[in-house]
């Protein structure tokens, strides 16, 4: 496996975690910008601003051989895992140079090289994948843990409980990571369930279960390391990271279902600002140091927009590719069949 970005777990010091979170924030802001400029292929863009500590903290606890799936709000996780932001942005833009040659987009991005078994646009759809990956890891003795990232909305899906039950029953190296941003689209978690202590459900199945406050990325990383290390040793776990979705469900959603006071309070729970303040307060770096770092990150992410705009869309001829394995014939295009049928005399 080659990593285009050093594995975050190699260094979990706060400065590094800040940098990773700041990269996620900057990337997500530019996804929004790409959308405004009419350069994204899809209308479905779900930003993870406010949730950076979950992505960065948990990825910091993972090892290079590990695999994972994400939900539809997974840009930050993939980036924290070491994705190339330019290829990510190109995929979000539906361009040939993207990770999936423009066929997947924001909600179906994947990269086998980094163990990304796929983002998913079905709520909970990627959860059982990690049970299978855990089985395979044990069968093939790879030492890999497989982590399913999903939102609080997915706790309404039965497949989460089927998957947790199997993982516990078989003692698989699997982690279920719930990024609880408090909202499934416009429905707040307490409007969707009577018991919001989500980790208790995992405990009921026999998994390790914790909830951690996402304000502090070091706490998230420490909790994730406990859960991931135990899973590697055969005790699967569940980690809920409490955070707040700063913006709407998707790019066009102005969140009319929540009031300004709530949003203001929620946005105070900013893991990036929190890490920055702690770094400066501890005297580890100066504000000027971090300003310079931020500027470098923003420049890197600005370049992803220019890169994406310059890229070509996938050729029309690629439309029938990869429905099946390349060794198999491609499906016959409707137009080809029509030409043949209508050519009769």
């Amino acid at each position: 496996m080659t990593l285009q970005h050093p594995i975050p777990g190699s260094n979990t010091d706060l400065h590094r975690l800040y940098q990773e979170m700041r990269r996620v924030r900057s990337f997500e802001e530019r996804v929004g910008e790409l959308f405004v400029r009419g350069q994204t292929a899809g209308s479905m863009l779900h930003l993870s601003i406010g949730e950076e500590s979950a992505a960065v903290g948990v990825c910091a606890a993972m090892q290079p051989q590990d695999t994972f799936t994400t939900h539809h709000r997974g840009h930050g996780i993939f980036l924290a895992r070491g994705a190339d932001p330019a290829r990510m942005m190109a995929e979000i833009g539906g361009k040939e140079a993207g990770y999936c040659h423009g066929k997947g987009g924001s909600m179906h991005i994947a990269d086998m090289g980094l163990g990304h078994l796929g983002a998913n646009a079905i709520v909970g759809g990627g959860i059982p994948t990690v049970v299978g990956a855990g089985l395979a890891a044990r069968h093939k003795k790879t030492g890999a843990v497989s982590v399913a990232f999903f939102g609080d909305g997915a706790t309404g899906q039965g497949i989460l409980y089927e998957s947790m039950n199997m993982a516990a029953l078989w003692g698989l190296p699997v982690v279920f990571c719930c990024i609880n941003n408090q909202y499934g689209m416009g429905t707040r978690i307490d409007q969707a369930t009577a018991n919001t202590r989500l980790h208790e459900r995992a405990q009921a199945f026999g998994l390790n279960g914790e909830t951690v406050d996402g304000l502090d990325v070091e706490s998230v990383a420490a909790a994730a390391r406990r859960i991931v290390d135990a899973a590697r040793a055969g005790k699967p776990g569940f980690l809920a990271v409490d955070c707040y979705r700063f913006y709407g469900h998707a790019r066009k959603d102005k969140s009319p279902y929540r009031d300004a006071a709530e949003e203001d309070a929620g946005r105070q729970k900013d893991p990036v600002a929190h890490a920055r303040a702690r770094l400066i307060a501890a005297g580890l770096v100066t504000a000027a140091d971090l300003d310079a770092l931020d500027a470098a990150i923003d420049a890197e992410m600005d370049a992803t927009i220019d890169f994406t705009i310059a890229q070509a869309e996938p050729p029309l001829s690629s439309m029938f590719r990869d429905v099946y394995d390349p060794s198999e014939p491609e499906p016959e295009p409707v137009r080809t069949r029509l030409d043949r049928v209508l050519a009769r005399e």
Binding site: T67, L117, T129, V131, G132, A133, I159, E162, S163, M166
Partner: peptide
Amino acid sequence: EPAIVGAAVGAAMTGL
């Protein structure tokens, strides 16, 4: 059943 098929998908993607 959903997790049986889902786990088979994940296993197939990772070498089984």
